[in-house]
């Protein structure tokens, strides 16, 4: 499980932003989490409270938007969302779809800062 170290990295980014604003309190962090990122949402949420302790992010929320996996189907010449990450087949024509367009995200998009 590496979610605690991921949570600590996110907290560090939050602290950096908070420091830029004179140590303002961070109320929430918004995160995009791709289903192919290798990071598990529940484990990350579980680590969040511990990671925030004693920082300007204490008792903040971690708002996670899960990003589905989108692949490119060569056969249909279009992008398709796949439902399961262990079935890389076009849901329409059933062709194998190795090209991943979206779903590896692990990105902080915004912070809610109390002023």
């Amino acid at each position: 499980m590496h979610e605690l170290s991921i949570a600590l990295s996110i907290v560090e980014m939050g602290i950096e932003e908070s420091n830029k604003r004179g140590g303002a309190k961070v109320d929430a962090v918004h995160l995009k989490l791709g289903r192919l990122s290798g990071v598990v949402k529940d484990a990350l949420l579980f680590s969040w409270e511990i990671a925030c302790q004693g920082t300007t992010l204490e008792s903040s929320r971690l708002e996670i938007t899960e990003i589905p996996v989108v692949v490119h189907c060569e056969n249909c010449k279009t992008d398709r969302t796949i439902a399961e990450i262990n079935n890389f087949l076009c849901p329409v024509c059933n062709a194998p779809t190795p090209e991943v367009m979206q779903g590896r995200e692990l990105e902080v998009t915004a912070l809610e800062i109390i002023e």
């Binding site: 980014m13 932003e17 109320d27 990105e107 809610e112 800062i113 109390i114 002023e115």
Partner: peptide
């Protein structure tokens, strides 16, 4: 009065790595 402001960041968490 305090208010919450949304600050856009857009940063990859594993950027350092």
């Amino acid at each position: 009065m305090t208010q919450t402001r949304l600050v856009e960041v857009r940063q990859n968490v594993l950027k350092h790595n």
